[in-house]
Design a binder for these strands. Structure first.
Length: 270
DNA sequence: AAAGACACCTGTCCGC
DNA sequence: TGCGGACAGGTGTCTT
C-alpha cells in the first residue's frame, strides 16, 4: 500500500488523535515483522506523545523515553479504532491511548517494522543515509542531474533509489516518468538536464496531487482516518499495461525492471 | 563501486 | 473446485 503519499495521508489521519495523548499500554501480538519488535518498545508505555513526524516512508512518534519508528512495508496500515473493537487477523500491534482509542497496526505480509530509538540517539541506521525529501527545496534539477552523471542504471531505478531521493515508489516512478515523457529504461547518466528539470517538477506534482487526494487506494488501503484515497482514478499508466495511452492512444507497454512492473507509452516516452 | 538478484511473507488472481 | 505459479505499494543484503 504505502508510498510517500499514503504514509503522509496516514500521518495526517492519526496525528490529531495521538498528539498529547499518553500511551497507556503496548500490545505486541506478533513481534516478527521485518525486524523483530524489541522489548525496549515498552519503554514508551506511560509516556506522552510529543510529536509525530515523517521522514521518507517512516513515521516517527516522539516521546521523552524514546522515539517509535514505524514503517508500513508493502501491506501495513495504521488506524484508530475504539477500544472495544476486537483484533482481526494480521492486527499485530495495538497502542492503548489515554483518550480511549487504540492505534492499531495491521500488516498481512509483515514487511513493515516498529523500531525503538533512544531519546539521546545521535544516529539512526535507517534514516541517516537517505536522500532528500522529494518535496523539499533540496531536491532540485541541479542535485538530481549531478547525481545522475555517469550512471548506467535505468532512470526509473535511479529515481526509486532512496539514497538518491526518498519516497518515489513504483506507482509514482511510473507516473512521473510518463508525465515527463521519459522512457524508464534510459540510462540515468544519458538523460539531459532539460529532461531532469521536467522530471523533478513531475515528481513533485504527482506526489503533491496524490497527497491532496488522500493517497492511492489499491487493495484495502485506508488512511488513518478510515477514508480511502482517491488518487487511483488519476493514475495514467500504473496498472494500465495493454490499455490505450491517454495522450496518443498507443498501446501502453508493460515490462519488468528490477522485478518491478514498468508501464510506459512507447510513443510519448521517446 | 555499481548493478542485479534475492530475501522476507501472505493474499489474490489466472490458467489448467 | 483445486493446485501451481506469478505477482503485489518496500528495502536490506548478498552475488556478480
Amino acid at each position: 500500500m504505502p508510498e510517500l503519499p499514503e504514509v503522509e495521508t496516514t500521518l495526517r489521519g492519526i496525528e490529531p488523535w495521538l498528539e498529547g495523548q499518553t500511551i497507556e499500554h503496548i500490545d505486541v501480538r506478533q513481534p516478527k515483522l521485518r525486524w523483530p519488535v524489541e522489548d525496549e518498545i515498552h519503554r514508551l508505555e506511560g509516556q506522552m506523545i510529543v510529536s509525530l513526524k515523517r521522514r521518507a516512508k517512516y513515521i516517527l512518534v516522539e516521546t521523552a523515553a524514546g522515539t517509535a519508528i514505524w514503517h508500513l512495508g508493502m501491506s501495513g496500515s495504521l488506524r484508530l479504532v475504539d477500544d472495544d473493537e476486537p483484533a482481526a487477523k494480521h492486527d499485530h500491534i495495538d497502542w492503548l491511548l489515554s483518550n480511549g482509542k487504540i492505534l492499531r497496526y495491521h500488516d498481512p505480509r509483515r514487511f513493515g517494522a516498529l523500531l525503538w530509538q533512544a531519546p539521546d540517539a545521535t544516529e539512526s541506521e535507517h534514516l541517516d543515509h537517505l536522500g532528500p525529501e522529494p518535496l523539499s527545496d533540496a531536491f532540485d534539477v541541479d542535485y538530481l542531474f549531478q547525481r545522475s552523471r555517469k550512471k548506467t542504471q535505468a532512470i526509473k531505478q535511479f529515481i526509486m533509489d532512496g539514497k538518491v531521493v526518498v519516497g518515489v515508489g513504483n506507482i509514482y516512478a511510473n507516473e512521473s516518468l510518463f508525465m515527463a515523457g521519459i522512457r524508464p529504461t534510459l540510462a540515468a547518466g544519458k538523460v539531459s538536464k532539460a529532461r531532469y528539470d521536467k522530471l523533478v517538477a513531475c515528481i513533485k506534482l504527482v506526489l503533491e496531487r496524490a497527497i491532496e487526494q488522500g493517497g492511492t487506494t489499491l487493495k484495502d488501503f485506508v488512511g488513518g482516518d478510515g477514508k480511502p484515497g482517491y488518487f487511483a482514478q488519476e493514475l495514467l499508466v500504473y496498472g494500465r499495461g495493454g490499455e490505450q495511452c491517454v495522450h496518443c492512444k498507443s498501446t501502453l507497454k508493460e515490462i519488468r525492471q528490477g522485478q518491478r512492473a514498468t508501464v510506459y507509452c512507447p510513443a510519448c516516452q521517446g
